[in-house]
Computed example of a mutant assay.
Amino acid sequence: MSCPICGKPTDPAYRPFCSRRCADVDLAHWLRGDYAIPAQDDEPDETPEGGAEDPDGAAPRGRPH
């Protein structure tokens, strides 16, 4: 396994990094917010055919003819 920061072989004392420096660089990335887990949108972008309930709980309406 290689260090995720610089690519050198890892040191068991700083695993998965090769040194204290690379471990600190990674910590700085986390503290600055450089690493982020993308938010997952719970609501679909479009209402599927047949219609889902409106956000206020009303029944779906048919299409105008």
Results as ranks from 00 to 15, higher is better:
Pro64Glu: 09
Ala28Pro: 04
Thr47Ala: 15
His65Asn: 06
Asp56Ile: 02
Ala36Trp: 10
Ile37Asn: 13
Pro60Cys: 07
Gly7His: 09
Asp41Gln: 12
Lys8Gly: 08
Pro48Arg: 04
Gly57Cys: 02
Asp34Cys: 09
Asp45Leu: 11
Pro55Met: 00
Cys6Gln: 01
Ala28Asp: 14
Pro12Val: 02
Asp45Lys: 04
Cys6Val: 02
Ser2Lys: 14
Ser2Pro: 09
Ile37Lys: 14
Cys22Tyr: 01
Ala36Val: 04
Arg63His: 08
Ala13Glu: 11
Gly50Pro: 02
Gly7Tyr: 01
Arg21Glu: 14
Pro44Gly: 01
Pro44Lys: 00
Val25Met: 06
Ser19Arg: 07
Pro16Tyr: 00
Arg20Gln: 08
Pro12Lys: 04
Tyr35Arg: 12
Gly7Phe: 03
Cys22Pro: 03
Tyr14Ser: 09
Arg15Asn: 15
Thr47Tyr: 04
Thr47Ser: 15
Arg63Leu: 05
Tyr35Leu: 11
Asp24Glu: 13
Thr47His: 11
Arg32Val: 05
Ala39Ile: 01
Phe17Met: 02
Arg15Met: 14
Arg32Leu: 08
Leu27Tyr: 13
Asp42Leu: 07
Asp56Glu: 06
Pro12Thr: 09
Cys6Pro: 01
Asp41Tyr: 05
Pro4Cys: 11
Pro38Leu: 01
Arg21Ser: 15
Asp54His: 00
Arg63Cys: 10
Ile37Leu: 07
Lys8Val: 03
Pro38His: 06
Gly62Leu: 03
Arg63Ala: 10
His65Thr: 11
Ala39Val: 08
Gly7Ala: 05
Cys18Lys: 05
Glu53Thr: 00
Arg21Ala: 15
Asp56Cys: 06
Gly33Phe: 02
Tyr14His: 14
Met1Pro: 09
Cys22Thr: 04
Ala23Asn: 08
Gly57Met: 03
Gly33Met: 07
Gly7Cys: 07
His65Cys: 07
Tyr35Glu: 05
Gln40Glu: 12
Pro64Ala: 06
Ala59Asn: 05
Ala52Ile: 01
Asp45His: 06
Arg63Pro: 04
Asp24Val: 02
Glu46Tyr: 13
Arg15Asp: 15
Gly57Trp: 01
Cys18Met: 04
Ala52Val: 01
Ser19Gly: 10
Pro44Glu: 00
His29Asp: 15
Tyr14Thr: 08
Arg20Lys: 14
Asp24Asn: 13
His29Val: 07
Ala59Pro: 03
Met1Ala: 15
